[in-house]
């Protein structure tokens, strides 16, 4: 037991063990640093920077999306306002046009009525004039007929004489 606790069966210190442990540990350290820890650290660092850049990119795209959304909302609002303005305009224009049409047709109707009344009036006057002429001619005819029937030889003579006398007196 004593020899085991001291770790040296033959007594004394195992100087070779010390040297071997030291050398093997240093060799292990160097080899691992070159073949294991180095590449592992590299990939861990790479992943870290990758994640970093991904987070940055995500943040940036989120910002961009936000900006886009804001512009879109703005655009939508503008478009809505424009549409409203166009509709209002159209409504107003339509109303005005309707009114104009109604006014034009009313004027036209008035004008047609006026023209018709004027024609009626002139036709009436023409008819009255014609009637008057007709009456005058007819009355002359009737008168002449009446006169022709009543005038005999003696009264004709008497009438001629009266005219002649009248003519002579006036001279």
């Amino acid at each position: 037991m004593q020899s085991l606790i001291l770790g040296a069966a033959a007594g004394g210190i195992n100087t070779g063990d010390i040297a071997f442990q030291l050398v093997s540990f240093i060799i292990l350290l160097v080899l691992l640093r070159k073949y294991a820890w180095g590449p592992l650290m590299g990939i861990m660092k790479e992943r870290q920077s990758h994640i970093n850049s991904e987070i940055d990119a995500a943040e940036q795209s989120r910002q961009e999306a936000k900006t886009y959304l804001e512009t879109q909302v703005e655009e939508l609002k503008k478009a809505r306002e424009e549409a409203k303005a166009i509709i209002d305009n159209a409504k107003k224009q339509g109303e005005a046009q309707g009114e104009a049409i109604i006014k034009a047709s009313r004027d036209e109707a008035e004008r047609v009525k006026e023209a018709a009344l004027a024609e009626i009036e002139s036709e009436k006057e023409k008819a009255v004039a014609t009637l008057r002429q007709e009456v005058a001619a007819l009355s002359v005819k009737i008168a002449s007929k009446v006169i022709a029937k009543e005038l005999d030889e003696s009264s004709q003579e008497k009438l001629i004489n009266e005219y002649l006398q009248e003519v002579g007196e006036s001279r």
Binding site: A8, D17, F20, Q21, L28, L32, Y35
Partner: peptide, 25 residues
């Protein structure tokens, strides 16, 4: 003075650690 048992076990430990680390990477 070399204790051959220690030499063997140190070598075995080192080789196992090296294999684990290198195979894993």
């Amino acid at each position: 003075t070399f204790n051959l048992s220690n030499v063997l076990m140190i070598t075995v430990s080192s080789v196992i650690v090296f294999l684990i680390a290198v195979l894993a990477t």
